[in-house]
Computed example of a mutant assay.
Amino acid sequence: MKLHRPTKDELFAAAGRTVPDLLAPGLRVLFCGINPSLYSAVVGMHFARPGNRFWPSLHASGFTPRRLLPSEQGELLALGLGITNVVDRATASADQLDAADYAQGAKSLARKVERCRPAFLAVLGLGAYRTAFARPKARFGPQEETLGDTRLWVLPNPSGLNASYQLPDLARLYGELRRAAEPR
């Protein structure tokens, strides 16, 4: 299914909207973006902006058997995967969020994790994790703390704006989580 390409007016009007979470009880991994882009808010799908490398990273790391499109996000649930965000409201960029947004988002996220109890919560963005969870020295990878029984893992943000990590880097780092989250 080809996504509707939003107009400038539609993007402008999407500020503050939300994208429904993709949640189910007992997920292997709940991926957690920073917050929805305006593009994602218009089309109603996570990581929908062209150039976002979330979907290619999931496939290249072995989480999905093929590269899914944002319109196929529902297929993740059958694979034990879900999607949410630290902050639910869409903005033009994550720079428009402040410490209070992240703190409130962390509380909301903790409630979501308590309800669906995923094995892992993968926060996609080191800065977002550091701010939301008040862990200024956190690094990528598994974290010492947990949310209940849910293990925390930090991965690079797959946004095309994050030039520090190319697809091979993302695939390797996402693959480390995939191996840790495989059923034993």
Results as ranks from 00 to 15, higher is better:
Lys8Glu: 08
Trp55Leu: 01
Leu38Cys: 05
Glu10Gln: 12
Ser71Glu: 14
Ala99Tyr: 02
Pro56Cys: 07
Leu30Gln: 08
Asn85Phe: 07
Pro136Cys: 09
Gly148Leu: 08
Tyr129Lys: 08
Leu27Ile: 05
Leu170Ser: 10
Ala132Trp: 01
Arg179Met: 03
Ser159Lys: 10
Gly82Gln: 10
Ala24Asn: 11
Ser71Ala: 14
Arg135Pro: 01
Gly148Glu: 11
Ala180Asn: 01
Asp98Phe: 07
Leu69Met: 11
Pro20Asp: 15
Leu170Ile: 12
Ala92Cys: 02
Ala94Leu: 09
Trp55Ile: 04
Val123Cys: 07
Ala41Glu: 03
Gly16Leu: 11
Pro142Arg: 09
Gly26Tyr: 00
Pro56Ala: 01
Thr91Lys: 11
Met45Tyr: 15
Arg28Asp: 05
Arg115Pro: 03
Asn157Gly: 05
Pro142Ser: 10
Gly141Gln: 10
Leu155Trp: 04
Arg49Gly: 05
Ala48Ile: 08
Leu27Met: 03
Val113Lys: 01
Asp98Gln: 12
Phe54Val: 08
Phe140Gly: 12
Phe140Asn: 09
Arg139Trp: 01
His59Cys: 12
Arg53Asp: 14
Val113Cys: 00
Gly62Leu: 07
Ala180Ile: 04
Val123Pro: 07
Ile34Asp: 09
Leu76Cys: 12
Ala60Val: 14
His4Gly: 01
Phe63Ala: 04
Ala14Gly: 03
Leu11Thr: 00
Glu176Cys: 11
Ala163Lys: 15
Val154His: 02
Glu75Thr: 14
Leu121Gln: 11
Ala13Asn: 08
Leu173Thr: 05
Leu124Gln: 15
Asp95Val: 13
Ala122Thr: 08
Leu27Tyr: 03
Ala180Glu: 10
Leu109Val: 03
Ala181His: 01
Gln104Val: 10
Leu152Ser: 12
Val86Gln: 02
Gly33Gln: 07
Lys8Gln: 04
Leu177Glu: 11
Pro168Arg: 12
Val87Trp: 03
Arg5Tyr: 06
Arg178His: 09
Glu72Gln: 15
Ser57Gln: 14
Lys2Trp: 01
Asp21Pro: 14
Glu182Arg: 12
Ala92Ile: 04
Ala110Tyr: 00
Asp101Met: 13
Arg66Asn: 11
Thr146Gly: 01
Glu176Asp: 15
Phe12Thr: 08
Arg115Cys: 00
Lys112Met: 02
Arg28Lys: 02
Gln96Gly: 10
Arg117Ala: 13
Glu114Asp: 08
Asp169Val: 09
Gly125Val: 10
Cys32Phe: 05
Val29Ser: 05
Ala163Ile: 14
Ser37Glu: 08
Trp55Pro: 14
Glu176Gln: 15
Arg135Trp: 00
Cys116Lys: 04
Val113Ser: 02
Ala128Glu: 07
Pro70Tyr: 10
Arg178Trp: 03
Arg179Leu: 04
Ala94Cys: 12
Leu173Ile: 15
Arg67Leu: 09
Glu182Ala: 11
Cys32Gly: 07
Asp9Tyr: 00
Phe63Gln: 04
Leu11Gly: 00
Ala14Tyr: 02
His46Glu: 12
Thr7Gln: 02
Asn35His: 03
Gln96Thr: 02
Leu11Arg: 00
Gln96Trp: 04
Asp98Val: 07
Val19Ser: 13
Leu76Arg: 13
Ala106Tyr: 05
Asp101Tyr: 05
Pro6Thr: 06
Gly26Pro: 00
Gly127Met: 13
Asp169Lys: 09
Asn52Asp: 15
